[in-house]
């Protein structure tokens, strides 16, 4: 505002011959960022906001047994989504699975990130190796567990040929394999985020701590760990949100009782063709996860997250 005012004042005092030029340069400069942003904004509006709006509207419609859905403002779907004990159970179970997954990602990811940070020279190769799985489709990566854990998979075959077991053990299609698949999928996100924050910590800090009498471990817990918490939190948030929103992993690696919330949405829309209910359910998940992101943003700030992604 102040800047605008200064420009205006300047323009008014300028001779009228240059006035037009000054105005148009100023106007062009002000327009430029919007011109550049327009395609992206257009795409976001068209592909994200408009469909989202449709979903919001849909969630208040009613499905009728025959014929088209009933348009209007009905709270029935929302009431059911919020009160049905089955939905609530699945929602809590989804959050639980996401939380356990996040915990294991942190447990496995931290040492890996620490190792990459402190390794001399070949950091880039290690980071590249970390990104390598992204070049393979997530679905194929998930399915690969069937070849490893399935009844004629690598593990069972190996155990049987060693004589440890006589018939294959049922290892697949339970909550543990869902978590395994999710950890497999999400670990790189965690490692990357922790790496970014560890890499920003001056190694002299740990040296200073040990010179003052702390052991290596004490120096780590007193200095490095607290300073890397923002990265751990950012990685945790990403893993949790992505984990809680997944439907492919439980579909491929879970049993019938391991459905996650996104599977409910899938079920409602694709199987039951109940678009209004599916809309309400997907919005509910969006709200829960959105609230979590908002909480994170309130206490830790979004900038850490973009650091980890960039």
């Amino acid at each position: 505002m102040i800047f605008d005012f200064a420009i205006c004042a300047h323009v008014q005092s300028a001779p009228s011959a240059t006035q037009d030029v000054a105005m148009s340069v100023e106007a062009r400069e002000r327009r430029q960022p919007w011109v550049l942003l327009a395609p992206a904004l257009g795409a976001v509006t068209l592909l994200l906001l408009v469909p989202l709006l449709f979903i919001v509207v849909y969630s208040f419609w009613l499905r009728s047994a025959v014929g088209p859905d009933t348009a209007g403002f009905h709270l029935d779907n929302w009431q059911r989504a919020l009160t049905d004990p089955f939905y609530r159970y699945i929602l809590l179970n989804t959050l639980k699975i996401a939380a356990i997954t996040t915990f294991f990602c942190a447990l496995l990811g931290y040492p890996a990130a620490y190792f990459i940070t402190r390794s001399s020279g070949n950091k880039l190769i290690l980071l590249l190796l970390l990104m390598l799985p992204f070049w393979i489709s997530y679905i194929i990566r998930t399915m690969s567990w069937i070849n490893i854990l399935g009844s004629s998979g690598a593990l069972n075959t190996a155990l049987m040929s060693m004589g440890v077991i006589s018939s294959p053990i049922q290892m697949l299609y339970n909550e543990a394999t869902v978590i395994l698949g999710l950890v497999h999928f999400l670990l790189p996100f965690m490692v990357l985020n922790i790496y970014v924050s560890l890499d920003g910590i001056d190694t002299n800090l740990e040296d200073a701590a040990t010179s003052l009498g702390a052991t290596r471990w004490q120096a780590f817990t007193q200095v490095t760990l607290p300073l890397s918490l923002p990265g751990l939190a950012a990685g945790g948030l990403l893993c949790f949100v992505l984990g809680a929103g997944t439907y492919i992993t439980p579909l491929i690696l879970g049993g019938p009782r391991d459905a996650m919330f996104a599977n409910l949405v899938f079920e409602a829309i694709i199987t039951q063709l109940n678009w209004p209910m599916g809309s309400a359910l997907s919005l509910l998940l969006l709200i829960v996860l959105g609230a979590l992101v908002a909480l994170y943003n309130r206490y830790l700030g979004m900038s850490q997250l973009t650091k980890g992604l960039g």
Binding site: D202, N204, L205, D207, A208, A209, T210, S211, L212, G213, A214, T215, R216, Q222, V223
Partner: peptide, 16 residues
């Protein structure tokens, strides 16, 4: 190092 009882000061201070 943690048993040597030395005071160390770095160029970039290295304060926590």
């Amino acid at each position: 190092i943690h048993k040597r009882n030395l005071g160390l000061v770095f160029q970039n201070y290295a304060l926590f």
